[in-house]
């Protein structure tokens, strides 16, 4: 078994309120694979990520990362949220370095890491904003800083919980392209959550459609679009629209529209 493989087997999870969030869910993310879970809100998607990250305790079923069980603060997992979670008192560059700083336990970055941080900021289109404070940035720019922070950590596994969910359509496309660029230059294992089907298709190797609460995997679709992908080129690609049509039926049934 590979070190950076995620396995979730027959996991159920009930909240303290008695609400059954996830029921009998199983999924596997292969090393270097980009898997997207798409589903209506409240289908327990975040619960699954929190279980994998070890932020909440497992109740039933089995979760493994490689051969290990989840534990909060594992350095091989980087977790990105829908909120940017930037520290307002730190300049952009120091926010990007924050994850690495906690992992290494020192404020002084190892040789090359600072250059890497600048490189990542340039890749997400924020060159020149290194010394700005978060309050001076737009929502989309702040989320790019969070993206750079996540990618600066050398963690082989990325968990992404609707990281672009709160952004406007245009900013979202730009950030999706930025994420593809970063991921294609260094293929890590990604488990990405969204309720946006278009986003799922352009990013994923494989899409898992989730049912409404209690969450379960309803269907699974391999997205066989060539990489590297250009999001704007995909808009005119009939295969992209085919996928959209195919998955939309499944998803619409769950969203009850």
């Amino acid at each position: 078994m590979y070190r950076n493989e995620i396995n979730v087997e027959r996991v159920s999870h009930r909240f303290a309120t008695g609400l059954l969030a996830v029921e009998d869910m199983s999924l596997r993310v292969a090393p270097g694979e980009f898997v997207v879970i798409v589903g209506p809100s409240g289908c327990g998607k975040t619960t699954i990520l929190n279980l994998i990250a070890g932020l909440i305790a497992r109740q039933s079923g089995k979760v493994t990362i490689g051969e290990a069980v989840p534990r909060a603060g594992r350095q091989d997992i980087a977790y990105m949220f829908a909120q940017d979670a930037l520290l307002p008192w730190r300049r952009v560059i120091d926010n990007v370095l924050f994850g690495v700083e906690i992992h290494t336990g020192t404020r002084k970055p190892k040789p090359g890491v600072l250059e890497q941080a600048h490189g990542l900021l340039a890749m997400v289109g924020l060159a020149g904003f290194e010394t700005a404070y978060p309050r001076q940035l737009s929502h989309g720019m702040r989320q790019r800083v969070a993206l750079a922070r996540t990618f600066l950590m050398p963690s082989p596994i990325l968990l992404m919980d609707e990281p672009f969910g709160a952004l406007d359509a245009h900013t979202k496309l730009a950030l999706e392209q930025g994420l593809l660029r970063l991921w294609e230059s260094n293929k890590r294992t990604v488990l990405f959550i969204t309720h946006d089907l278009a986003e799922a298709i352009v990013l994923a190797d494989r899409i898992l459609v989730c049912t409404t609460r209690p969450g379960r995997i309803k269907s699974e679709i391999a997205v066989d679009l060539p990489r590297p992908r250009s999001i704007s080129a995909l808009q005119n690609d009939p295969r992209y629209h085919d996928y959209y049509q195919r998955i939309w039926g499944d998803l619409a049934a769950e969203m009850a529209i």
Binding site: A72, G73, Y79, A85
Partner: peptide, 9 residues
């Protein structure tokens, strides 16, 4: 931020 702190360990 607390969630970030926990996930980073």
């Amino acid at each position: 931020l607390i969630r970030l702190s926990r996930s980073l360990g």
